[in-house]
């Protein structure tokens, strides 16, 4: 079957996306340590811009959303809305122990159980409290690997675990 990916403009867009992903950071109730480490990534020591990674303020421009922190009750609906605003194909990195499971904040009354994945689908988890900037860069690179793999396989479906809800396609149908 001939896929939409084969058109020249598609190929160009995909090439550009993998070479220069734009990221957006959303704080869902973290202690700021993760946010500061993300900003440190953009700074001269780590300088992710040399890899073409660019931080954007708006999720509407972003390919990758980095979510920091446990999801508080108030941020839950806002996180969903921000994720819905992102254009396809979208990828999510859950940062730190809190992003994975709620971390030290697990079970608090104003925190949603189960970390970021209980609200939106997550592609890459980064360990640490907070993760070091090099680990964040590594996670973004791992996410790019997933992006390439998804393009080759025509969607995110292959990563679906048994019993999981269907994922969105990697490509918006033309």
């Amino acid at each position: 079957m001939l896929k939409v990916t084969d058109s020249l403009s598609r190929r160009l867009a995909n090439w550009a996306r993998v070479r220069s992903p734009w990221i957006s950071v959303f704080n869902t109730g973290s202690c700021n340590a993760c946010d500061i480490e993300v900003i440190a990534c953009l700074m001269p020591r780590f300088d992710v811009e040399r890899f073409g990674i660019l931080a954007k303020g708006s999720p509407r421009h972003a390919d990758i959303l980095i979510v920091t922190g446990p999801v508080t009750r108030k941020q839950e609906s806002r996180l969903r809305r921000i994720w819905e605003q992102m254009p396809e194909p979208k990828y999510v990195i859950a940062m730190g122990a809190c992003g994975a499971s709620g971390g030290v904040f697990q079970g608090l009354y104003h925190v949603v159980d189960g970390g970021v994945e209980s609200v939106i689908p997550v592609d890459v988890f980064v360990a640490g409290c907070p993760p070091r900037p090099d680990e964040i860069i590594n996670a973004v690179v791992a996410c790019l690997g997933l992006m390439k793999e998804d393009l080759a396989r025509g969607g995110k479906e292959w990563r679906r675990k048994p019993g999981e809800a269907p994922r969105e396609p990697a490509e918006v149908p033309a």
């Binding site: 508080t72 904040f105 608090l108 925190v111």
Partner: peptide, 11 residues
């Protein structure tokens, strides 16, 4: 200021 209220004092 409620966006990052987690309930640490109770925990």
């Amino acid at each position: 200021v409620s966006y990052t209220h987690r309930g640490i004092e109770k925990a």
